[in-house]
Design a protein around this nucleic acid. Sequence first.
DNA 1: ATTGAAGTACACG
DNA 2: CTAACGCGTGTACTTCAAT
Length: 379
Amino acid sequence: MLHRIILHLDIDAFFASIEERENPRFKGKPLVVGAEPMEGRGRAASLLAGEPRPMGRGVVSTANYEARKYGIHSGMPISKAYQLCPKAIFLPVSGSLYQKSSERIMDIVRHIGGEMEQVSLDEAYIDLSNNRAIAQLLDEELKWEKAKEIAENLRNEIFEKEKLPCTCGIGPNKMMAKIGCELAKPSLADESRRANGIKVITDKEAEALLEPLDIEVIPGVGKKSGAILKSQGIHTVRDAKKMDTISLKHFFGIRGEALYYRLRGIDDEPVVTEREVKSIGKEHTFQEDTRDPEILLSVFEGLLKDVLAELEKAGMECKTVTVVCRLKGFETHTKSKTIEPTGNFAILRREAIKLLLRFIVSYSLPIRLIGIRCGVSDK
DNA sequence: ATTGAAGTACACG
DNA sequence: CTAACGCGTGTACTTCAAT
């Protein structure tokens, strides 16, 4: 497929926008959806401590734009979010509410026509290359215009039916569509939140548009890789394009090749309709680090039970059981064992507990998190 | 040489 | 005390052993 037109959709501040929709009094006020900031703080403790201080060990799932003005963002420790804006409204994550909304949104997206890839609850790609309205057009210019029209209709429909604001990016590939979407997001300064909404980046424009952008806009270049590059004086895509293929390979291994092209606006990743499940897991962070075998074992069994239920539902069996353990201080390790595929609780418990016990023996630090993950095989 | 297992690191939403 | 840091999933790298 030589000339593609890909659309990327992303709901603005998804969880927070849903909460605002459900309770319009929240609009215009800083709102943080995520962990409970005071979790683990007992009544006695707060009386003794005077001014309440955040204790929760969770993170921010989504902050609305008012909260973002205080520097709060997704993934930030909830305790820090509280420090930045103690007056913000803090709400727990209402997963099933968001799930239902997501399903209705994805149904709307599917109706556009074209291969659709759902990336998360609130994000999707759609390949418009073979869309009825677009494929019949001969003129390239008109195709891009038509794609924009489709995106406009999509945004309107989602706003009318689901009462949620969203942003679309349109580009010659998934990467550029996603970057376009990011560029079209409402800015903090824009109180109306409706400034752009859609950004079209044609194949002709892609390379030049990327040049001045921060290197971390490129998918696959995250915090760590970005920091390494920046320590070498490479901050923008333009800087990175000066690197030869040898050093790209050196820094990024097998991904260096793809990166060379991505820096130039080229990305061949197809829109993938269905993806097969490769692993199913559950993990739990304790309110306080612990080595109490009672607590450890009961939580561990609960996690295993949940994993098994999902395994069962998916009609899968566990082939590799991995136990993860995060210690006080955040040091994290895994131990795994490949076994004869099974969905049997007793067998998996025996294997998993053997792995867990090895942790208890090898490390004397209190434990912050335990988890269990099953690499799956078809039944 | 290739493959599989175990363990680590990083990325993304 | 200047760090704080969830959860679920996927990919790639490294090392070691067996084929």
